[in-house]
């Protein structure tokens, strides 16, 4: 089911000045409920603008943003409430930490929501669990944590608001492979339990292949492609043509196909590739 969608949305920065720039150009796209949708595209393709339109930080120059079928920018709509329903984790969110303890920082959003003490406490526990942080860190100053831990606290701050739509802009940027896995894995576990809508912005096709269900590909403020990971990655040529990558394993499958091996090309994880090779050879080779 459609949870949040843009209908013919255009957004221009500094309209009417020499700096005017069209970031989104009449884009229509919907994000499904109970799915992780990956949002990909070049820097400057309008991804960041799009996510800020979804939670009302920006207002469209033209067109409408719908949440559960209702125009979010309608007159009298409480924008703060909208932001609690549509949680947005910015890139490098660790730079927004400010409280004295981890628990207090995570509680900032829930407190602004006006929740009672027990509920806030419960939310903190829940958020810490999903980002994989130990409860013993609650009383520690966030500024004493490592970079990766700070990132998790910041993400926990949004998870604790328990938003219906969770948007994350490059949540794993700059982290090492195991750090990426822990954060993205935690987000997936969270989504699978809450069955809410998650929108994940990332440049890493490998991460997208592993964690996203659907993909939305943007290009120069417009929608380029939309579909399941298999559908989108199967069109490797089209992605490459717009300057985007596909996972290395998908490229391998393409290369095999070109060499006359009858493999499927809609494969995007190593596990799938292994199964496919085993299917071709009729099982393992154990002597």
């Amino acid at each position: 089911m459609k949870k949040i969608e843009l209908d013919g949305v255009t957004y221009r920065y500094s309209p009417g000045t020499p700096f005017c720039k069209t970031a989104l150009d009449g884009i229509s796209v919907a994000f499904e409920e109970n799915k992780i949708t990956g949002l990909i595209g070049h820097t400057g393709c309008g991804k960041s603008t799009l996510v800020q339109l979804l939670n009302g930080l920006l207002t469209p120059t033209a067109g409408t943003v719908f949440l559960d079928g209702e125009d979010v920018n309608r007159k009298g709509n409480d924008m703060r409430k909208l932001r609690f329903r549509v949680g947005l984790v910015f890139q490098y969110p660790e730079y927004q930490l400010f409280e004295e303890t981890v628990a207090e920082d995570i509680a900032y959003g829930p407190k602004n929501m006006g929740l009672d003490k027990e509920e806030i406490e419960r939310r903190i526990e829940m958020a810490l669990h999903f980002v994989g942080l130990d409860g013993s860190l609650k009383k520690v100053s966030p500024f004493d944590l490592s970079g990766g831990q700070k990132r998790r606290v910041a993400i926990a701050g949004i998870l604790a608001m328990d938003p219906e739509v969770l948007i994350l802009d490059e949540p794993a940027a700059g982290l090492d492979p195991s750090g990426r896995e822990e954060i993205l894995g935690g987000i997936r576990a969270y989504q699978r339990e809450k069955k809410n809508t998650v929108i994940l912005v990332s440049h890493s096709m490998e991460d997208m292949a592993r964690y996203a269900d659907d993909l939305v590909v943007m290009r120069e403020g417009k929608l380029e492609m939309q579909g399941s990971c298999a559908e989108v990655f199967a069109q490797a040529e089209r992605l490459t043509a717009v300057g985007l990558d596909v996972p290395q394993i998908t490229r391998l499958m393409g290369a095999l196909k070109r060499r006359g091996v009858p493999v499927r090309t809609d494969i995007f994880t190593v596990e799938q590739a292994k199964e496919e090779i085993l299917r071709l050879t009729g099982g393992p080779r154990h002597a």
């Binding site: 394993i249 391998l252 190593v270 292994k274 090779i277 393992p284 080779r285 154990h286």
Partner: peptide, 14 residues
């Protein structure tokens, strides 16, 4: 990923 696939296949006796 390619290195990983080859490693998995080796484990399967390839």
């Amino acid at each position: 990923q390619v290195t990983e696939l080859f490693s998995l296949l080796r484990e399967e006796g390839f």
